[in-house]
Simulated scan of single mutants.
Amino acid sequence: MTPIFKDPNAVLTYSIAWPPDTIGGAAISAASWSVMPDEPGGLAMSGEFVDGSETGARISGGLPGHVYRASCHIDLGDGRSADRSLLIRVDQR
């Protein structure tokens, strides 16, 4: 997985477009985001959203030189669930 680069001062919206073969025509009923490692001064999540087959969140902060895994878990209307992750490397720009 190739990391996405982020400045620690930037507040950016990241999103995941869930492919049809993952959701199989079902609606996304809930989405939750988490970040690892969870550390003081690390990435912070806010403004989580679901828009059709896309989920996203605003991500801020992070410690320069650190790599984080931002994960999104979705629940589908038909009872299934799925997870996807983004690798985010924080670099001072």
Rank of each mutant, 00 (worst) to 15 (best):
residue 2 T to E: 15
residue 2 T to H: 12
residue 2 T to I: 13
residue 3 P to C: 04
residue 3 P to T: 09
residue 5 F to Q: 15
residue 5 F to Y: 15
residue 5 F to E: 15
residue 5 F to N: 13
residue 6 K to R: 10
residue 6 K to T: 05
residue 6 K to H: 09
residue 7 D to M: 08
residue 7 D to L: 07
residue 8 P to W: 01
residue 9 N to G: 11
residue 11 V to Y: 08
residue 12 L to A: 13
residue 13 T to E: 12
residue 15 S to C: 05
residue 15 S to D: 14
residue 16 I to K: 05
residue 19 P to H: 04
residue 19 P to G: 06
residue 21 D to L: 10
residue 21 D to I: 11
residue 22 T to H: 07
residue 23 I to D: 09
residue 23 I to Q: 11
residue 24 G to C: 08
residue 24 G to A: 13
residue 24 G to Y: 04
residue 25 G to M: 07
residue 26 A to R: 04
residue 27 A to N: 11
residue 27 A to C: 05
residue 28 I to K: 00
residue 28 I to W: 00
residue 29 S to P: 03
residue 29 S to Y: 03
residue 29 S to L: 06
residue 32 S to H: 10
residue 35 V to G: 01
residue 35 V to Y: 00
residue 36 M to S: 15
residue 36 M to N: 15
residue 37 P to I: 05
residue 39 E to C: 07
residue 39 E to M: 12
residue 40 P to S: 10
residue 41 G to I: 03
residue 43 L to D: 01
residue 43 L to K: 02
residue 44 A to Y: 02
residue 45 M to K: 08
residue 46 S to M: 08
residue 46 S to T: 13
residue 47 G to M: 06
residue 47 G to D: 14
residue 48 E to D: 11
residue 48 E to P: 05
residue 49 F to I: 06
residue 49 F to W: 04
residue 51 D to H: 08
residue 51 D to G: 10
residue 52 G to F: 05
residue 52 G to A: 11
residue 52 G to Q: 08
residue 52 G to R: 08
residue 54 E to A: 12
residue 55 T to P: 02
residue 55 T to L: 04
residue 55 T to H: 02
residue 55 T to D: 03
residue 55 T to I: 15
residue 56 G to R: 01
residue 56 G to M: 02
residue 57 A to P: 01
residue 57 A to C: 12
residue 58 R to M: 12
residue 58 R to T: 13
residue 59 I to G: 00
residue 60 S to G: 14
residue 60 S to I: 07
residue 61 G to I: 02
residue 61 G to H: 04
residue 64 P to L: 07
residue 66 H to I: 09
residue 66 H to P: 02
residue 67 V to M: 13
residue 67 V to W: 08
residue 68 Y to R: 01
residue 70 A to P: 01
residue 71 S to L: 08
residue 71 S to E: 13
residue 72 C to N: 09
residue 72 C to S: 09
residue 73 H to E: 10
residue 74 I to W: 00
residue 74 I to M: 02
residue 74 I to E: 00
residue 75 D to R: 10
residue 75 D to N: 11
residue 76 L to T: 09
residue 76 L to V: 07
residue 77 G to P: 01
residue 77 G to V: 02
residue 79 G to R: 05
residue 81 S to N: 11
residue 82 A to W: 06
residue 82 A to V: 05
residue 82 A to F: 07
residue 83 D to I: 14
residue 83 D to K: 15
residue 84 R to D: 14
residue 85 S to P: 06
residue 85 S to E: 10
residue 86 L to I: 13
residue 87 L to I: 12
residue 88 I to N: 00
residue 91 D to C: 10
residue 91 D to L: 13
residue 92 Q to G: 12
residue 92 Q to C: 08
residue 93 R to A: 13
residue 93 R to K: 14
residue 93 R to E: 12
